[in-house]
């Protein structure tokens, strides 16, 4: 199969970026916003890889590939962190009066596996 047209994917990447950005600003639900960030990121990665394909002689440019791999890992880390934070915030908002179940983190140090070893 012949190579894809990089410009097509480049534009798609930019479109994802724009869609992600719009949704990030417009949406209010935390999960949607986190997904929006991921979509933005995917857009950037798509653009990177499309650009890598432009230099496809004899193979696509491996440097952007490595960068995108790094980017994907960073993105999932970001998602993990954002979700944990969003969860705390939502827990707060869900029961504003009563403190979140883990506050105070009572008896935590005694039973956490960190101390078991």
């Amino acid at each position: 199969m012949p190579d894809a047209d990089p410009r097509l994917y480049l534009l798609a990447g930019l479109a994802l970026f724009a869609i992600g950005f719009y949704s990030l600003v417009v949406q209010t639900h935390l999960l949607r916003r986190i997904m929006a960030l991921n979509v933005m990121g995917s857009g950037v990665f798509l653009a990177f890889l499309a650009l890598a394909l432009k230099a496809a002689a004899p193979m696509p440019d491996p440097v952007p590939h490595a960068m995108v791999l790094t980017g994907i890992v960073v993105a999932v880390c970001a998602t993990g962190l954002a979700l944990a934070l969003a969860d705390r915030v939502q827990a707060l908002e869900a029961n504003e009066e009563t403190p979140a179940p883990e506050e105070p983190p009572s008896a935590e140090t005694g039973s956490e596996p960190e101390d078991a070893g």
Partner: peptide
């Protein structure tokens, strides 16, 4: 899409991490 852009390394990573793990997290 990564496969079409001749980036199999990333296709693997995306399927596992970008889609799978992120999806599971969300």
């Amino acid at each position: 899409a990564w496969l079409r852009l001749r980036a199999p390394d990333l296709a693997l990573a995306e399927a596992a991490v970008g889609s799978g793990l992120t999806g599971a997290l969300i």
